[in-house]
Computed example of a mutant assay.
Amino acid sequence: MEFDQPPVVRVDVEPGEGLDEESWPMTIPAVAQLAREGLDLPRGVTFLVGENGSGKSTLVEAIAAAYGLNPEGGSTGARHRTRASESPLGQHLRLRRGIGAGRWGYFLRAETMHGLYSYLEDNPTGLEQRPSGREAALHEMSHGESFLEVLRTRFDSPGFYCLDEPEAALSFSSTLGLIDTLHRVAQEGGQVLCATHSPVLAALPGATVLEVGEWGYQQVRWEDLELVQHWRAYLEAPQRYLRHVLDD
C-alpha cells in the first residue's frame, strides 16, 4: 500500500502541568483556538500572517519543537542553546505524522540565526545533520546572503521546514528567491510552515494563508489579508499614514 502524506498532518494540544489556561501563551487567542480545535496542516506551504504579538511565531516555534527541531534553529540534530525564551506550548503538542513521510526537518528563525551560524562553524562534523561538503563561512556573508545559503543547503529534501519571519534578512529580490525555494520544496513533496509579515512572500501561488489576530486564526485569500490592504493603501498614498505618526 502506498501513502502520500505530508510530514505533519494535524496538530493538537494536550493539556497538562505547565500549561495554565489563565497564563501566557494560552491567553493568546490563536493558541487558545489551537487548544480547542486543533489545526490541520495541508501539504505544501502554509503562511501564518499577523501583527506582532498575534501568536504566529509562538505557534511556529512550538510546532517546530514538537517535531523535534531545535527551538533556536537547526535540524533535529542541532543542540545549541543560548537563552531559553520559547513557551512551554511545544511540550504539550501532539503531532499526527504523515504515514510514509520523511523525518528530516529544519527550523530557521531570523532572531537566532547568528547563534546557529556559530554552532555550525564550531561543530562541522557534530550532531547538526548538515549536507555533505564544506561548510560555508556564514558569518563572513551579508545577512541576506547567509540566510539564502542556509536555505540552499538545508532545504534540499522533502522534509518539514519551519521559518519565523525570514523576510527580516532579505531584500525584495532575495525574497523572490525565497519564494522560488519554497515553491521548489513544495513541488518536491516537502512541507513548509512560515510566520511572516511579508505580503510579497505570502503571495506564493498555491500556498495556504492563515490570518492570525485577536479572533484566533482563519484561512483567507491573499488579497483579503489586512496586511495586503494596508500595504496597497500605503504605497498609493503614504502621507495618509505618515501624518498620524509624524509631528507637523
Rank of each mutant, 00 (worst) to 15 (best):
V49E: 10
G50D: 13
N52I: 07
N52V: 11
G53E: 07
S54L: 00
S54Q: 03
G55A: 02
L59W: 07
V60D: 00
E61M: 08
E61N: 14
I63D: 06
A64G: 14
A64N: 01
A64L: 11
A64H: 10
A64E: 08
A65Q: 13
A65E: 12
Y67V: 03
Y67N: 04
G68W: 08
G68L: 12
L69A: 06
L69C: 14
L69K: 06
L69W: 02
L69Q: 08
N70V: 02
N70H: 09
N70L: 09
P71V: 01
G73P: 00
G74R: 00
S75N: 13
T76E: 08
T76S: 07
A78K: 00
A78M: 02
R83T: 14
R83F: 13
S85P: 00
E86L: 02
S87V: 01
S87E: 10
P88M: 04
P88E: 04
L89T: 11
L89R: 11
Q91V: 05
Q91H: 14
Q91R: 12
Q91Y: 14
L95G: 06
L95R: 10
L95A: 08
R96Y: 02
I99Q: 04
G100D: 13
A101V: 07
A101L: 11
A101K: 08
G102C: 07
G102H: 14
G102S: 15
R103M: 08
W104I: 03
G105Y: 06
G105K: 10
G105C: 10
Y106E: 08
Y106W: 15
F107H: 15
L108N: 00
L108W: 00
A110N: 09
E111A: 15
T112L: 12
H114S: 14
L116D: 05
L116S: 10
L120Q: 03
E121N: 03
D122E: 10
D122H: 03
D122G: 07
P124H: 01
P124A: 01
P124E: 03
T125V: 02
T125C: 07
G126R: 01
G126M: 05
L127S: 13
Q129V: 03
Q129D: 11
R130C: 02
P131F: 04
S132R: 14
S132D: 11
S132Y: 04
G133Y: 09
E135R: 11
E135M: 11
A136L: 09
A136G: 10
A137H: 13
L138Y: 15
L138A: 06
H139W: 13
E140P: 04
E140K: 12
M141C: 11
S142M: 14
H143K: 09
G144H: 06
E145L: 06
S146H: 02
F147R: 05
L148G: 04
E149T: 13
